[in-house]
């Protein structure tokens, strides 16, 4: 299988287009006949990462790199960064604004969902500079 790389711009506060990058990625993987479990896991992680860019990240990019062995999903933003990554990983911890919580976001489940559904998760963040998240999903056939 050839390697495919795609990148999507995700704009701050753009709730109108939020989720579209993840839907593109999901359709791409389905068209490449990846197994249902891998597609499901990438879809969940992609959506969580995309919503984090919309709500917290400032402008950012969501990119996917696919080959026959694995899918790598990366998000990079120029937002405020994460001060305490360990704290942010705790289920229930959220810094989302009240208006986002009323929409059903900000339950503090995004990063835990990403950890649970990826095979490897790496977060690097510099306060004031932005955040970079990389997730790997192995193709188990």
């Amino acid at each position: 299988m050839t390697s495919i790389h795609k990148s999507y711009h995700v704009a701050k506060n753009d709730f109108i287009h939020a989720g579209e990058a993840s839907i593109h990625v999901k359709n791409l993987l389905k068209s490449m006949n990846y197994n249902q479990d891998l597609v499901r896991r990438v879809a969940i992680c992609g959506y969580e990462a995309e919503m984090n860019l919309v709500m917290h990240g400032g402008d950012g990019e969501l990119s996917v790199d696919v080959n026959s062995e694995r899918v790598i999903l990366e998000v990079a933003d120029r937002g405020p960064g994460i001060l305490d990554i360990e704290l942010a990983m705790q289920e229930g911890y959220s810094t989302a604004k009240e208006e986002y919580r009323e929409m059903g976001f900000g339950a503090g489940m995004g990063l835990p969902n990403m950890k649970k559904n990826s095979d490897a998760l790496k977060i690097t963040s510099e306060p004031g500079q932005g955040t970079h998240v990389s997730m790997t999903f192995y193709n188990k056939g």
Binding site: F15, I16, A18, G19, E20, S22, I23, K26, R40, A43, I44, G46, Y47, M51, M103, G104, F105
Partner: peptide, 16 residues
């Protein structure tokens, strides 16, 4: 079944 009626529910339904 949800009480949420805003546009972002559609992406969740598509992805799942």
């Amino acid at each position: 079944l949800t009480v949420q009626a805003h546009q972002n529910i559609v992406a969740v339904a598509v992805l799942r």
